[in-house]
Design a protein around this nucleic acid. Structure first.
Length: 542
RNA sequence: GCGCCCGUAGCUCAAUCGGAUAGAGCAUCAGCCUUCUAAGCUGAGGGUUAGUGGUUCGAGUCCACUCGGGCGUACCA
């Protein structure tokens, strides 16, 4: 609906040139009394024109050449809002568009030809994915979906590190459990991985190799087997949620391909490094960061910053127009250094968008569950998925703004899953399918021939909600905010349930019945499209 | 101490670039099924948007400070 008004305002700029100086926007007013779309342009111009906003509003209205068949009424209200009321005909037209585009309705080609990379999950293979990783996984995949909906060619990527201290401890942990199975009496160190899965891997090795591995290095077969098994499980957990990464990027390849040394050399050439206490420091303080940081430890090992910068430069070299990083708030201190480093060596760091989600606090029966992979005190993503199902997991994690901390009460999720909003949305979809099955007996058909009969306020409200879908997708994708889709779908479902109550189909005069049926059918398409962005199923029966 | 995020109804959360009377769900209370799924609908109660000050036609939203919470602040990743 906004498009029409934007172009009308653009034409009005000829008569009121000051309109060019402000950013024109249209809001959907909270109350229907204030029309379908509202503009605050007059109020924004009060200073420039030094006139009463209501007077300016009238001048704007006079300058606009509006088609009566689109805009039925324009009003000045409140302190100077210009409220536009759309004609019934125009509002109804959306049905034709939906029927025409079907599962493509809401998609846009605004960013067609652009390439994006979304890096998410990126957990090292030291243990199963927990509920905490779930938020990252679901939001990352949904952000990727959103970008695809506005035209991007998207690649999903998983960055991991199978070297380093964490993985050494993993190998050691497996070896200790293996020795336990062989009957050795050892005290399992507290800071080793305590999870049952370590014992399972050790047992597998015992079954396969007997006691022949007693003298093997923990970093060889023990670590390698653990990595393989754990990664297999991680991928399976993700696949169970409909998530499939195209690229698994091993940090180690950056070393093997000399990218780390290359980067270090570049920094040195640009005179951005110095040595102190046997370590190599990057002059981040000269790059707008609070303090210099160590890139290469005195031991000769790089810190995580160096590979992180190298990794991002490699990704930028691949030619993406947009790079998304998604990680938890525990990493919030690391990315400014990476961005500063990238910028210093000539990359366009504005292509990198870092999304940081706040933590998920797991509750069980009102009690906080402290999570630690090391201590094996956690609820796995698989367990959660098994309890409540993919649809609930995906909807739930997408529901909230990632800037907010999120409470996940397991006992509530299990016990009251019936009351989860995802069912409310899915139920609307199922209800529509139900009526579609029923009308076959009545020989009613989906038809655009009598849509002008849709005049009930609940029908009009539903139509206007349908109008907003495309804009909502575009906005959600631009802002990289998945929760907006959930909010929208909930409103759409509510509008449908209301309509379902007041605008009955069976037992109604044929033309009106078919018009309503067609509206319901269009609603079904939009609900299904919205749910598909979230990766949530649209059941035909519940 | 410093940096990032947060503080909205009893609970969990929305709120478009700063817009009009701050909205939903859960919970509580009162209604609605011989009619397309009651996993639904209608209504009621519930708020000094943590606090103080500022910016302006207008602030939950922006700025400053205070209080409270989360995460960081390594030659760990």
């Amino acid at each position: 609906m906004k498009e029409y008004l934007y172009s009308a305002f653009r034409e009005a700029e000829n008569k009121i040139p000051e309109l060019k100086e402000i950013s024109i926007s249209f809001d959907v007013p909270k109350s229907i009394e204030h029309g379908d779309l509202s503009s605050n342009a007059a109020m924004l111009l009060t200073k420039r024109l030094k006139k009463n906003p209501k007077v300016i509003a009238q001048e704007i209205i006079d300058a606009l050449e509006l088609n009566k068949s689109v805009i039925s009424k324009v009003e000045i209200a409140g302190p100077g809002f210009i409220n536009f009321f759309f004609s019934k005909d125009y509002v109804t037209k959306i049905i034709k568009e939906i029927l025409d585009k079907k599962d493509k309705f809401g998609k846009s080609d605004k960013f067609k030809g652009k390439r994006a990379n979304v890096e998410f999950v990126s957990a090292n293979p030291t243990g199963p994915l927990t509920v905490g990783h779930g938020r990252n996984a679901v939001v990352g995949d949904t952000v990727a979906n959103l970008l695809e909906w506005i035209g991007y060619d998207v690649e999903r990527e998983y960055y991991f590190n199978n070297a380093g201290r964490q993985m050494r401890v993993l190998g050691d942990s497996v070896k200790y459990r293996y020795l336990e199975i062989l009957g050795d009496k050892i005290e399992f160190p507290q800071d080793y991985y305590q999870g049952e899965y370590i014992k399972d891997i050790a047992m597998q090795l015992f079954i396969k190799y007997g006691d022949s591995l007693r003298n093997e290095d923990p970093e060889s077969i023990f670590k390698d087997t653990a990595e393989q098994e754990i990664f297999f499980d991680i991928k399976k957990s993700l696949a169970n949620l409909g998530i499939n990464h195209k690229i698994f990027f091993n940090e180690n390849s950056l070393y093997e391909e000399g990218k780390i040394n290359e980067l270090l050399k570049t920094f040195k050439e640009k005179n951005l490094t110095y040595e102190k206490d046997g370590a190599v420091w990057l002059k981040l303080s000269e790059l707008g960061q609070p303090e210099d940081k160590v890139m290469v430890k005195s031991s000769g090992e790089p810190t995580y910053r160096l590979p992180d910068i190298a990794y991002h430069s490699v990704k930028l070299q691949r030619g993406y127009d947009l790079l998304i990083d998604l990680f938890g708030s525990d990493h919030n201190a690391t990315y400014p250094d990476v961005m500063a480093g990238l910028k210093a060596i000539g990359y366009d760091s504005s292509k990198v968008k870092v999304l940081i989600h706040q933590f998920v606090t797991i509750m069980d029966g009102g009690e906080v569950v402290k999570m630690s992979t090391r201590k094996a005190n956690y609820i796995t993503l698989d367990e959660l998925n098994g309890e409540v199902g993919k649809d609930v997991v995906r909807y739930f994690f997408n529901m909230r703004n990632i800037n907010s901390h999120m409470f996940f009460d397991l006992s509530v999720a299990k016990k009251q899953s019936d009351e989860n909003p995802v069912f409310y949305v899915q139920y609307a979809h199922a209800r529509i399918n139900s009526i579609l099955r029923r009308v076959k007996e009545e020989q009613l058909e989906v038809s655009i021939n009598h849509l002008e009969l849709l005049s009930h306020e609940d029908e009009q409200a539903l139509l206007k909600t349908l109008h907003q879908f495309s804009e909502e997708v575009l906005l959600s994708a631009k802002e990289l905010e998945t929760h907006r889709i959930c909010t929208y779908l909930y409103e759409l479902a509510a509008a449908y349930h209301k309509f379902n109550r007041t605008s009955r189909i069976l037992g109604t005069e044929r033309h009106l019945a078919e018009a309503r049926l067609t509206l319901a059918y269009a609603t079904m398409i939009v609900i299904k499209n919205g749910l598909s962005i979230l990766g949530v199923s649209a059941p035909e029966e519940m």
